[in-house]
Design a protein around this nucleic acid. Structure first.
Lengths: 226, 226
DNA sequence: TTGTCGGCCGATCGCCGACAA
DNA sequence: TTGTCGGCGATCGGCCGACAA
């Protein structure tokens, strides 16, 4: 998935460890987060904490809910194996915590009018000015179609119009389809982003808690799968 | 789930073993059916086939897709443990293969007109006569609301009307909601059933193959969970 | 007997400016 | 500047009989 959007959805406080770094694994904490706690009774030589080496980090998103999470593969072997050369990430590497250089983003909490079926999306002035492409203000009304990509890389198109008295920016056609497909409701946050190349991205974060259902990476097959 | 509907969806060729009977378990075959093949390398004393006792059988249905499947718990201990008393099933027991006595059923492959958003469901004459409650043919047009339960026990209501020239039986109001909720398409089969008490049930089978995602029953906790 | 079609009517969707916070 | 509302036109859902296979 796109690391811009992943980080915007996860929030700036969420940080992932760099590949090759050494961390402590707490089985007890892992079990408590799991929806079906595993039975450790048969595992020999259980220890409360395990020193591990991070062998892989993947930024992932649930295909159904768009919930973002990180899959962190740990290698418990000691001494740690020599680091595997990591292919350069497309942006600034998954280990870093900050956003990419030159990326502009804007977040808004969806109002009831934004989330209602009947309406469009009220675009705050700053978002339209600093993120969306400039409109041709000689037209009446000024209008364009903007194309954005979500965390999966899926492309969405919105009609962006500047109309009404007094004038305001709105997203109309395409917006309600996005809201319905993503099952967004009032109170959820939406984030628009523009990278150095001017490409647009969209992400969001839901208000309610979601109980994560992930998978597991076997530590015997490090890094690039397949 | 209701065993009438389960059997109608699974088909008459699908049979489940009786609790207490002894079967052979083939780990290899089990692994091949699984979407993420398990790694047996760490399991000691692997054998190609294992003689087991059936400790529990549950007829289940995927809450999302309505895909039916059986969860069969196996106990590899030898000699087999004394049989656990099984509470009598509501119908004829999950071990049997045949349909219940006095159950009348009728299946139809959905036509494009049946599955289209715009239309209702053309009820074949035999289905209306032998399964649905009798209409009051003095009314013009004869019409009633029928109430059916699906494999989960969820109740669905359909408007059943006898109209048109020439006259024919149709399901109108409520039908398209059912089609949309169940994501039925032309070519899928639908089954209507009536038991001795006159209660109506509905099930269906999809044309396309679905890759099952089930769960596992630990053999250490036989039969009734909780 | 029953599958498909076009007609038609009502419900909903969704775009709009008015207005006020 | 922007959130909400009522208006209203376009679209769609869905019920109907006609007709033919």
């Amino acid at each position: 998935v796109d690391s811009y959007v992943w980080k915007a959805c996860a929030g700036t406080a969420a940080k992932t460890p760099a590949v090759g770094s050494r961390v402590y694994y707490f089985p007890q904490g892992h079990a408590e987060q799991s929806s079906s706690p595993p039975d450790f009774s048969a595992v020999p030589c259980r220890r409360p904490i395990v020193l591990c080496t991070v062998s892989a980090v993947r930024l992932l998103a649930n295909p159904d809910t768009d919930e973002v999470f990180a899959q962190i593969a740990l290698d418990p072997r000691f001494p740690p194996p020599p680091p595997v050369p990591v292919p350069p990430d497309t942006h600034d590497g998954v280990g870093g915590g900050g956003g990419g250089v030159g990326v502009v983003s804007f977040a808004k909490i969806l109002t009831p009018s934004d989330a209602n079926n009947g309406g469009g999306f009220s675009v705050p002035r700053f978002c339209a000015d600093s993120i969306f492409p400039g409109l041709d203000f000689k037209a009446d009304p000024p209008v364009q179609t903007i194309s954005v990509r979500d965390v999966h890389g899926t492309r969405w198109e919105f009609r962006h119009i500047y109309r009404g008295t007094p004038r305001r920016h709105l997203l109309t056609t395409g917006w309600s389809k996005f809201v319905n497909c993503k099952k967004l409701v009032a109170g959820d946050s939406i984030v628009f982003m523009k990278n150095e190349a001017g490409e647009l991205f969209v992400g969001f974060r839901r208000t309610g808690r979601s109980c994560g259902s992930m998978g597991y990476l076997p530590y015997s097959s490090p890094a690039g799968a397949g």
